[in-house]
């Protein structure tokens, strides 16, 4: 049952997005997020959300998965939108006691909903189309300039890689331990709050013990293969920008410029600052 949990899962494929360099994907994602929040009127909002849908289509990942990731946050979307709906200023279109809905309230609610959903979708694209190792490789390369400030970028990236690598392993381990304790009559499903917390001890202790055991084993294995940190370490797969990255960069630059032009020359729908 724990196997069904997805944590930024990667789906192997051969789409345009899969072939892109992780660095370019991370950079463009950052810009995407910024521009999603820079949209000031409906034209720019439509440009951004349509382009998000385009990217989803290009990723060739099943729409069901995207639907699932949106479903996970749908309550936050509804809650924040509803809150904003009643916080507008200006002429009320509808009023009941202290609750009033104004045009600006409706606009803000729509903007918030579209922005949050786009944000989640575009971020899922990155994790769905980039393998965890590629992702950390990309982050490592991008953060490399920080080593000037004595930040150990390679070590941080290696820790991230290892952590990601061990999530499924530890989940499987948890499943096994839970079954073993259930077989001895452990009861995780009933009882009050305190009892349920206590019931976790027989799982957590063996899980920690095995996590440490695995950590020692891994450290030993890395050392026996002469791992000594990032210094002077070369890569088997060197990250390289290809035509896919340049095409993506060009297309998205056009879209981003379009958004800026819309913001500058068309009237803003939202109050400034939103």
């Amino acid at each position: 049952m724990l196997k069904e949990i997805t944590l930024g899962q990667y789906f192997p494929g051969k789409s345009f997005l899969h072939k892109m360099d992780p660095r370019m994907k991370i950079i463009l994602l950052t810009f995407y997020i910024v521009f999603i929040f820079l949209t000031k009127n409906y034209v720019s909002l439509v440009i951004m959300s349509v382009s998000v849908l385009g990217v989803l289509f290009l990723s060739k990942v099943s729409p069901r998965l995207y639907f699932k990731s949106v479903k996970a946050i749908i309550f936050i979307v509804i809650f924040t939108s509803a809150l904003n709906l009643f916080y507008g200023t200006g002429e009320p279109l509808w009023q009941w006691k202290f609750l009033k809905i104004t045009e600006s309230g409706i606009n803000t609610a729509i903007f918030i909903a579209v922005r949050i959903i786009s944000l989640v979708l575009i971020s899922s694209v990155l994790t769905y189309t980039t393998s965890p190792t590629d992702l950390t490789d990309g982050i490592e390369r991008l953060l490399k300039p920080l080593s000037v400030f004595h930040i150990q970028v390679h070590e941080i990236a290696m820790m991230m890689t290892i952590a990601l690598r061990f999530i499924p392993t530890l989940l499987e381990e948890t499943d096994k331990i839970m079954n073993a304790q259930k077989a001895r009559g452990a009861d995780f499903e009933s009882g009050n709050f305190m009892n349920r917390i206590k019931a976790l001890i027989p799982i957590l202790v063996p899980l920690f013990v095995s996590a440490f055991r695995r950590a020692f084993d891994l450290a030993m294995a890395m050392e026996s293969r002469c791992y000594h940190g990032g210094e002077g370490r070369t890569r088997m797969k060197v990250l390289k920008y290809t035509k896919y990255d340049y095409i993506a960069l060009a297309v998205l630059t056009v879209i981003f410029v379009g958004v800026i032009i819309c913001n500058l020359y068309l009237p803003a729908t939202l109050r400034s600052g939103m």
Partner: peptide, 13 residues
């Protein structure tokens, strides 16, 4: 129906 899993020593706590 008692069950002893593979590598049962990992369940000691």
């Amino acid at each position: 129906v008692g069950m002893v899993f593979q590598y049962p020593e990992y369940q000691l706590f």
